[in-house]
């Protein structure tokens, strides 16, 4: 994993922990954060805003699929892909 990817994953993890009030140990990199109910609708809206504001990406309708947001790993890959890294 590149240094960029490690940094992105760390930031995403920090954000999710701070936004959900769930212990860092409980959310694994592959935990299904929506399926397991850590985020509700507003949580998703705020997550998108966080990603756009902090990683300079712009989400489009075709990005809004489960594969891009289901876990910390998926979000990290999505941000890297959008940034063309």
């Amino acid at each position: 994993m590149s240094t960029d990817a490690v940094a992105i994953k760390g930031k995403v993890k920090d954000y999710i922990q701070q936004a959900t009030f769930v212990d860092r140990d409980k959310i694994r990199d592959d935990s299904l954060i929506f399926k397991e109910g850590y985020f509700d609708s507003m949580g998703f809206v705020v997550l998108i805003t966080y990603l756009e504001e902090n990683f300079g990406i712009k989400t489009t309708d075709s990005d809004l699929v489960e594969e891009n947001f289901e876990s910390i790993n998926a979000i990290t890959d999505f941000v890297i892909r959008k940034n063309g890294n």
Partner: peptide, 8 residues
């Protein structure tokens, strides 16, 4: 039909 909540 997926696990993502809707966006507006």
């Amino acid at each position: 039909y997926n696990n993502l909540p809707p966006l507006f």
